[in-house]
């Protein structure tokens, strides 16, 4: 299954599940990133990492290592 890390700029997807359950992932869920939430991959930083996503109407940046733990549809 694809992860958030595999999306291309401008692409929209719906979050399916998390492959990790640690404090960082819990934090993402508190920020509204969870199963069933639609996300837009906005872009990656000039050096390719971290990435910027649009979720629940605001923009969030996270590292690719974390994006790899988020499965999407």
């Amino acid at each position: 299954m694809r992860t958030l890390n595999d999306l291309k700029p401008g692409e929209t997807a719906v979050i399916d599940s998390f492959t990790e359950n640690d404090a960082d992932m819990d934090y993402l869920m508190e920020l509204g990133v969870m199963e069933g939430t639609p996300v837009v991959f906005v872009k990656s930083a000039p050096l390719g990492d971290p990435i910027e996503i649009d979720v629940r109407g605001y923009h969030l940046s996270l590292r690719r290592s974390r994006a790899r733990c988020i499965r999407v549809n």
Partner: peptide
């Protein structure tokens, strides 16, 4: 013990 993280809001 929290791994270095970079979850950060990018405000308008």
């Amino acid at each position: 013990g929290r791994p270095s993280s970079f979850v950060m809001e990018l405000p308008p």
